[in-house]
Design a binder for these strands. Structure first.
Lengths: 119, 119
DNA sequence: TGCGGTACTTACCTTTTGGTTAGTGAGGAG
DNA sequence: CTCCTCACTAACCAAAAGGTAAGTACCGCA
């Protein structure tokens, strides 16, 4: 499933970046990992209200393939797997900063009134 | 169709912003509109290689609802409709700037080698 | 003995998204 | 007279994304 070669001749940078963050939970995963630095699978699951195990695994795997997260498996008695951001993941998060601020503005705007539109 | 109330209690700003730009062509529409300031329907269509009329209309309508684009209809003999960015659309584009830069970096990286990943 | 926690995978199903084709109505080109 | 353009809308389909439920193997706790 997912997309095979992380595909597509991208038309612009936005394209390439959105490809990597599109997915219902990816933004939140990035957020969680940025806030806690290191998280185990079950911790992430508890941190994302409503995520299914399947989607969490799938997103995590895709983000690993994309070089955004690092997956460290400890061969221990109860299995332990720790996820953290790679350098690319951290720079992506920084690039996402202004977008997050814009989004918060939007929430604030919509929370107050729905009108406006005209420039 | 689409999503009724532009919904969802968002968990963070990224969420709210991604909701607005997710859609196969929305990034490109923003890009086109930012570059040309004003574009007609057919011009946009020609500018986005492969877009279907249905999707273009649909995306444009959603972006209008979201207060990102302005739609000006001229009651003329051959119908004329002009699209442009609103103030919110322009600020969104600015917020998208760093993300676009990150994406271009990613394209460059992948174009050269696929390795790396470790922090 | 049986339950819960660990980190998953698999199969199946529903929802969402995007694409295709055709049709609208009026004017202008040939 | 017929086709093309403009800016759409509607009906229908295919593909992708996401959700649900179950199973795996091993451990500790009671």
């Amino acid at each position: 499933m997912a997309k095979a070669p992380r595909c597509g001749p991208y038309i612009c940078g936005i394209d390439a970046a959105l490809d990597v963050v599109s997915g219902k939970w990816k933004g939140l995963i990035l957020w969680e990992l940025d806030a806690h630095h290191v998280r185990r699978f079950a911790e992430l699951r508890r941190g994302l209200p409503g995520v299914s195990e399947k989607m969490l695994t799938q997103h995590l795997r895709e983000m690993e393939e994309d070089g955004l997260v690092h997956r460290e498996v400890y061969a221990e008695v109860p299995p332990r797997v720790e996820y953290s951001l790679t350098e690319h993941g951290r720079t992506l998060n920084q690039a996402l900063g202004p977008l997050g601020a814009w989004g918060r503005e939007r929430i604030r705007r919509e929370g107050r009134e729905l009108v406006d539109t005209s420039a």
